[in-house]
Write a protein that binds this DNA or RNA. Structure first.
Lengths: 196, 196
DNA sequence: ATTCACCAATTGAACGTTCATTCGGTAGGC
DNA sequence: GCCTACCGAATGAACGTTCAATTGGTGAAT
């Protein structure tokens, strides 16, 4: 095992520990001592990798966004028709959050907290850009209504996030049927149905 | 001025102070000492009205939801056609958040924090019920697609919240045109267009 | 009309705890 | 001998909460 990988292991352990604790207890309720304990490192070690608690949390956000972006790019079969690709992307996005619940809750807490203001990626998020690019393509080719691309991508994104959150709280049961309905409802909203 | 009103004044001052500070600094960054100072009361006074910091924050949430619900009910002219009423409600909702920015940010922080889990109103929110009732009416009368009412109301709600947030961050300019477009996009998604 | 007992509202200094962060030190590779 | 990774007890500031003391208003008793 190379040294870099060892470094990465500790860093990853700290990330994983932080992620889980923040999800459970919020930023408020996750002391560095606990982060260290759960990660299996000493408290001081965290400060070897991160300047401060704030820096750790912001770094974690960037790290997670990057990982998610990677996965969103995979398996987009460009030979398929646009609508199918839209549904695929929407559902892939949705299922990513189901598989990574703590990521979803971490994101939601983060973007609504004052941390987000100080985040370097703010407004130039790769993950958001992937969706925006795909939607812009759809507008150019006439599959979608004309609209500000960023606006549309944020709206689509929020429909995914909201659906995932509803599903996870269990307040409303979301079966495969409901899921399909929601995606359909979003699609019906943005598709270009002029000339039909 | 009756005694009750004087009491209310102090409580309101504490509420207002908390709201503003949480919006600026998050739950994390608003010490009770500051809440007291900004409200113009002594630290101990807060504990005369609220059991703890957590209790204060949860009480504030309930208070704000109630006030918002009141306003959402006003001026719904039931003689207008359903679509118009939908656009009116959507926009009223949107503009409420523009006028009460700190309420929006407080809500968003709150519902994504562990506080929400312990909130008595969780899942039976009057504000959410108003929207749900209106949408159920639309489904019954055939104006809207059939869908789980709660699910649809949360989705509509999140489109408002998201739009308001986008507008306020200034990341994307939302003119009256864009606003109309978004409302239209939501409407197109949920309206029943069978048989046309 | 005055006194007094009572209580709710309020104060802010003080308390004990918790927490982020520091730092002196160890271990091992180069 | 130096550097990097790592440790964990120690530090001190910040925080939520408490509480003894003060105020001011109300009403019953005189």
């Amino acid at each position: 095992m190379s040294q870099e990988e060892i470094i990465a292991e500790k860093k990853k352990a700290i990330f994983a520990s932080t992620l889980e604790l923040v999800r459970e207890n919020g930023f408020h309720g996750t002391p560095m001592s606990l982060v260290a304990k759960k990660a299996g490192v000493a408290a001081g070690t965290i400060y070897h990798y991160f300047e401060s608690k704030d820096a750790l949390i912001i770094a974690l956000y960037s790290y997670l966004r990057g990982k998610m972006a990677e996965e969103m790019l995979r398996d987009d079969d460009q030979t398929l028709d646009y609508q199918t690709r839209f549904f695929n992307l929407w559902k892939k996005h949705f299922h990513y959050f189901l598989r990574h619940t703590d990521v979803l809750y971490f994101f939601e807490q983060f973007v609504n907290s004052p941390y987000y203001e100080r985040c370097p990626e703010k407004g130039n998020d790769r993950c958001q850009n992937i969706i925006a690019t795909f939607l812009n393509e759809g507008m150019e080719k006439g599959f979608l209504k004309q609209m500000n691309g960023k606006l549309m991508s944020i709206l689509v994104n929020s429909s995914v996030v909201t659906s995932a959150k509803i599903h996870l709280t269990g307040k409303v049961e979301i079966t495969e049927t409901e899921l399909q309905q929601v995606a359909q409802y979003v699609w019906d909203g943005i598709r270009n149905n002029q000339g039909f």
